[in-house]
Measured scan of single mutants.
Amino acid sequence: MQIFVKGLTGKTTTLEVEPSDTIENVKAKIQDKTGLPPDQQRLIFAGKQLEDGRTLSDYNIQKESTLHIVWR
C-alpha cells in the first residue's frame, strides 16, 4: 500500500509499505529516500508519536494515510 510522509518543509515523500511493517522498517525506507537516519526521525500520526516496535496496523494506518515527520 502507499502512504505519504510529510515533513516540516511541506515536502511529501511517498512510500510503498505493508500494514505489517514495523515503524522501524518504515524509518529505514524513509532513510533510503531522504538520507535522514532513523535515529533522527520522529513519526507522528493522529497526534501520536509512533514507536519503533509497533506496526502500521497497530496504529490503524491505512493506504494513503499521511504521517508527519519531525527531525530530532
Results as ranks from 00 to 15, higher is better:
M1C: 03
Q2P: 07
I3F: 01
F4W: 09
V5R: 01
V5Y: 03
V5F: 06
K6F: 09
G7Y: 14
L8D: 08
L8A: 10
L8Y: 14
G10T: 08
G10W: 06
G10V: 08
K11I: 14
K11Y: 14
T12H: 08
T13E: 12
T14R: 10
T14M: 12
T14F: 09
T14S: 10
T14L: 13
L15K: 00
L15E: 01
L15P: 00
E16L: 14
E16W: 15
V17N: 00
V17M: 04
V17R: 00
E18D: 10
E18F: 12
P19F: 06
P19S: 06
P19I: 11
S20K: 08
S20G: 11
D21K: 01
T22W: 04
T22H: 05
T22Q: 04
I23W: 01
E24G: 10
E24K: 11
N25L: 12
V26M: 03
V26T: 04
K27I: 04
K27C: 02
K27F: 04
K29Y: 07
K29D: 02
K29M: 14
Q31T: 09
D32E: 14
K33F: 11
K33C: 05
T34Q: 04
G35V: 02
L36V: 11
L36P: 03
L36W: 12
P37C: 06
P37Q: 09
P37V: 08
P37K: 11
P37I: 08
P38M: 15
P38H: 10
D39Q: 14
D39A: 10
D39E: 14
Q41E: 02
Q41D: 02
Q41F: 15
Q41W: 15
R42F: 15
L43Y: 02
I44H: 10
I44P: 00
F45E: 01
F45N: 02
F45Q: 02
F45W: 10
A46S: 10
G47I: 02
K48P: 01
K48T: 14
Q49T: 13
L50S: 00
L50I: 04
L50E: 00
L50W: 01
L50Q: 01
E51C: 06
D52N: 12
D52F: 04
G53W: 12
G53M: 08
G53E: 09
G53T: 10
R54C: 06
T55P: 05
L56I: 10
L56R: 01
L56V: 08
S57G: 11
S57F: 09
D58F: 14
D58C: 02
D58H: 11
D58M: 05
D58S: 14
D58W: 13
Y59N: 02
Y59V: 02
N60A: 09
N60E: 06
N60L: 07
I61F: 03
I61K: 00
I61W: 01
Q62E: 13
Q62H: 07
K63I: 06
K63L: 06
E64V: 03
E64Y: 13
E64H: 13
S65P: 01
S65G: 06
S65V: 06
S65Y: 07
L67S: 00
L67A: 01
L67V: 08
L67T: 01
I69T: 03
I69W: 03
I69Q: 05
I69R: 02
V70K: 08
V70I: 12
V70H: 11
V70R: 08
V70E: 11
W71T: 13
R72K: 13
R72G: 12
R72Q: 15
